[in-house]
Amino acid sequence: MITLENIQRIFPVGDQQVHALRDINLHIKPGEYVSIMGPSGSGKSTLLNLLGLLDHANSGTYRLAGDDITSLSDEQHAQLRRERIGFVFQFFHLIPRLTAAQNIELPLTLSGVPPEQRHKRARDALTAMGIADRADHRPDQLSGGQRQRVAIARATIMNPDLILADEPTGNLDRASGKEVVEILEALNKKGKTLLIVTHDPELGARSKRLLHMVDGKIVSDEQQNAGES
């Protein structure tokens, strides 16, 4: 699914160069469930952004499903994000003036899917998330857990094969955090590749593969079977 070779990411901060990612080599198979942990500033979010094509490496090669996509244009990156990648954010990033259903429909709207089809798919997604009765509520009328479920529904509405979650439970209470994780894991069971960046050791322990990052390097990469519960 994903192959990173010798990825370097350097940010200029003032007159200094900050190595956010140093020589990252990583291979992720389709359908894997990977957690990335590490202290703040270790580069885990940068890695996730890079995998999500929101950021570019300074050097190195990124293959997605076998294709080298390092040198593609912005436009082509946008298309890949649209069709193959779903993002779930810590702060949900729902558009406050749109209803839950409209937020979920947004990717479909942006790619020009006709309204009837959009509405049906959004309804189905809301039902699958167990929040069908919240379809016409705006984000500020939803609880944190409901918002994150709307966000997950939006991330998966285009049926991507890669889901990238940046601290998906970071802003949720324990109970709704657990629900959200279970939804993400259920998606992984259906065959979607799932990458979660987290601070939470408990969440990290659930995944089948755990990466530890320190100072822009992957310092450990372990397979675990604790995920089954």
Partner: peptide, 12 residues
């Protein structure tokens, strides 16, 4: 919001 639109794959 613009960041989100970009993450969702909206071309420039």
């Amino acid at each position: 919001e613009i960041g989100l639109l970009k993450a969702l794959g909206t071309p420039n």
